[in-house]
Design a protein around this nucleic acid. Structure first.
Length: 100
DNA sequence: CTAATGACATTTG
DNA sequence: ACAAATGCCATTA
């Protein structure tokens, strides 16, 4: 059956390169406010390289956490053309991908 | 079934 | 504006 986690991964896969999304947006798309569960799902995500989990950040514009270290996450995002103010995303609202 | 956990978000001091 | 406390939901033990 399609678990909550699978839905999360599926939405995460839809985020285009060079853009990011938030845990909150994903939760909302699933008709709930389980941002916590979303993070949990991505952490336990068995499709580590398949799903672009690094494109999911906090609603505040901070990168949040990452299984291999937040530092790595930032590096990967930078590689995709995303700019940073230290640990915070630059032009956050402009590169934010919305599902709706 | 109950308790604990976590890559969060929002409110409060 | 920043840091701490509180609330949140699904998953796991």
């Amino acid at each position: 059956m399609r678990t909550f986690n699978e839905k999360v991964w599926e939405l995460t896969k839809k985020v285009p390169k060079g853009k990011v999304s938030t845990y909150q947006e994903i939760a909302k798309e699933l008709n709930c406010k389980a941002y916590r569960a979303v993070g949990y799902a991505l952490n336990k995500n068995p499709f580590a390289p398949i799903v672009p989990c690094h494109r999911i950040i906090k609603s505040t514009g901070e990168v949040g956490g990452f299984a291999h270290g937040s530092k790595k996450k930032i590096m990967m995002l930078k590689k995709e053309g995303i700019e940073f103010y230290g640990d915070k995303i630059k032009n956050f609202e402009k590169i934010l991908f919305k599902f709706k």
